[in-house]
Simulated assay, not measured.
Amino acid sequence: MKREFKLAVAIFIAIFIIDQVVKFGFANLGWDANGSVMSLKLAYNYGVAFSMFSFLDEYLKYIQLFIVVLGSIYLYKNIYLFKEYYIAIGLLYAGGLSNILDRFTYGAVVDYFYWHYGFEFAIFNFADVMINVSVAIIIFIQIRNNRREKNLKEKSSL
């Protein structure tokens, strides 16, 4: 368990720092760049994905922090889940808490990846990508575990 915790913390620290440094560059140093497929363009998201819930304005950061606290309590009470999903949890916490810090620092989440080739896609950031990667890892582990259970049941019924 110590090994998993140390690795999750290392992942968290690395992703969190990288994301905050890049966001600082876009918010304060004008790192914008235009391309034919994708542009790097500063945008502030006052909501969550696709600006949903932006009407919650100042309350959103506190709601999100409350959700993180609830999730942490749940993981503490179900430590076996942490052991199985520690990489995804490190990525998820890094991305989520980095975006929450943006709300306290900039008043909104700093976004900068803008895909515009063939279709226009929402502007997003590195933390958003890490959150999606963590969800993909969780889904992968769930599918793998379900297949293992199914195979064990089939073998035991023979």
Rank of each mutant, 00 (worst) to 15 (best):
F140R: 04
D57F: 00
I15E: 08
N125S: 11
A43D: 09
N45S: 06
D111K: 05
I73V: 07
L158R: 12
M52R: 02
F124G: 02
T105S: 12
K83F: 07
F113K: 08
K77S: 14
N78L: 07
D111C: 04
G47F: 04
F121E: 11
F121G: 13
G96K: 06
L70I: 09
I137F: 07
F24C: 09
E154Y: 11
N99V: 02
Y46P: 01
A49H: 00
K23F: 05
F119V: 14
E4P: 05
S51F: 06
Y85R: 07
S98K: 04
Y85V: 03
K23Q: 05
K23R: 07
F82T: 05
F104L: 15
S157T: 12
Q64S: 11
F113N: 10
Y93Q: 06
Y74I: 09
G118M: 02
S72G: 14
I73W: 02
M130Y: 09
I79H: 00
G107M: 13
L97M: 11
F104V: 13
V109K: 03
V129P: 05
R144N: 12
A127F: 08
V22M: 00
I73K: 02
H116N: 12
V129G: 02
G47D: 07
F53N: 03
G47M: 04
D19T: 06
R103K: 13
G90L: 00
S157L: 08
I79Q: 13
S72H: 07
S156H: 10
I131P: 01
Y74P: 03
A10C: 13
A94G: 08
F124E: 03
I13L: 15
M1N: 11
F53E: 04
E84D: 12
I17H: 06
M52S: 09
S39Y: 02
F16G: 02
F16K: 03
K155C: 10
F24K: 09
R144H: 12
S98Q: 09
A10W: 11
N145I: 03
V48M: 13
N125V: 06
A108P: 03
V37E: 08
I67F: 11
N28S: 14
I87N: 09
D102Q: 08
I100Y: 12
A122V: 15
Y46M: 08
L152P: 07
N99K: 05
W31M: 08
K61I: 02
S156T: 12
A27P: 04
I63P: 06
L158N: 13
D19H: 05
I17L: 14
M52L: 13
I123L: 02
Y59A: 12
G96D: 02
G47C: 03
A88L: 05
G96C: 08
Y46E: 09
A27V: 08
V129C: 11
N78V: 06
N45H: 04
I138F: 00
M38A: 09
Q142Y: 10
A8Y: 07
I63D: 00
D111W: 03
S54G: 03
A14M: 15
K6E: 15
R103W: 07
D102G: 05
Y46W: 03
V69E: 04
G25W: 02
N151S: 14
I18E: 00
